[in-house]
Computed example of a mutant assay.
Amino acid sequence: MTVVRTERVGSALLITIDRPEARNAVDAATAAELSAALDELEATPELWAGVLTGAGGTFSAGMDLKAALKGESPEIPGRGFGGLTEAELTKPLIAAVEGFAMGGGFELALGCDLIVAAENAKFGLPEVKRGLIAAGGGVVRLPERIPHHLAMEILLTGEPINGIRAGSLGLANRVVPAGETAAVALQLAEQIALNAPLALAAVKNVVRASDRWAAQRTEIAKLMTSADVREGMTAFAERRAPQWTGR
């Protein structure tokens, strides 16, 4: 039984966690299929961005505790929770968050490059209420995204915030009415896809590098020898849309 669906929409891959009966909680099978979907995104030249969402009006309730009690792991070695939170993807990934994004679900969203949130979405890291910490990237990424004391409040209380609050904190790029997140995220993906794929990958490489200045020098040197840079300059001079090749 497939628990992660993929659909190509233009130049974007819509990835849907499809376990609504479990509020899209991540078990071993879900992690494996999500990892495979991300591989599809990475390996397909016609796809320039991905959108991650959940079926049934819920993004993800995080780790499937019932499966975990049976000994299942929701992590993929080297790629983290759900095969995403530690993965080094070259293509932009957008989270379209409806309903609950709790625990690992929130961490999946934090593992994406952009977040589109429904107004009534719920983001939370309640691990401390269970004697744990948000070890799928929550305690690492959240303090990097929002002011320290606000991140600590979310991490230490375990209490959720809604989509509107997430937008006001800068966690969400767009806050939209419930039911519209996937459509808006796909629009963002198409906007991103107007740009050069090598440049998009270079941005991601620099942002996640430990020495960003060194990484920036390396990436710009590579880009300056690419056919896409020449095409971008030529298209600008000729006042036309560039035709990117990814070379």
Score class of each variant (00 low, 15 high):
97 V>A: 14
160 P>I: 04
24 N>G: 03
228 D>H: 08
180 E>H: 14
44 T>G: 03
42 E>K: 15
244 W>G: 10
202 A>E: 02
100 F>P: 12
82 G>I: 04
3 V>W: 12
146 I>R: 04
35 S>D: 02
67 A>W: 05
111 G>E: 04
16 T>L: 08
53 T>S: 14
110 L>I: 07
24 N>F: 00
232 G>P: 03
41 L>Y: 05
141 R>Q: 07
191 Q>M: 12
177 P>D: 06
146 I>G: 07
43 A>M: 00
155 L>F: 11
134 A>C: 14
130 R>K: 14
18 D>A: 15
127 E>W: 11
94 I>C: 05
141 R>P: 00
103 G>E: 05
106 F>V: 01
135 A>P: 02
149 H>I: 02
61 A>H: 07
165 R>C: 01
234 T>L: 15
58 T>V: 14
100 F>A: 14
80 G>P: 08
178 A>S: 14
175 V>I: 10
246 G>F: 00
20 P>C: 09
111 G>K: 13
160 P>H: 02
63 M>P: 01
89 L>Y: 01
126 P>F: 09
86 E>S: 12
232 G>K: 13
85 T>Q: 11
136 G>T: 02
124 G>E: 09
203 V>L: 11
161 I>A: 04
185 A>S: 11
109 A>L: 10
217 R>A: 15
184 V>G: 09
171 L>A: 11
222 K>T: 03
214 A>N: 02
91 K>D: 03
62 G>Q: 11
127 E>A: 13
126 P>K: 13
94 I>S: 00
49 A>R: 05
242 P>S: 14
146 I>T: 10
150 L>M: 10
172 A>G: 05
8 R>N: 01
92 P>A: 12
87 A>D: 06
99 G>P: 07
125 L>T: 02
230 R>W: 10
65 L>M: 15
54 G>K: 01
135 A>L: 11
208 R>H: 07
121 A>L: 02
109 A>F: 07
117 A>H: 04
102 M>R: 14
198 L>C: 05
180 E>N: 15
148 H>N: 06
102 M>Y: 01
65 L>P: 01
23 R>K: 12
67 A>N: 10
223 L>W: 07
219 E>D: 00
61 A>I: 03
39 D>W: 03
224 M>S: 15
209 A>G: 09
56 G>D: 06
97 V>H: 13
160 P>F: 01
224 M>G: 08
138 G>N: 09
186 L>Y: 04
73 S>N: 10
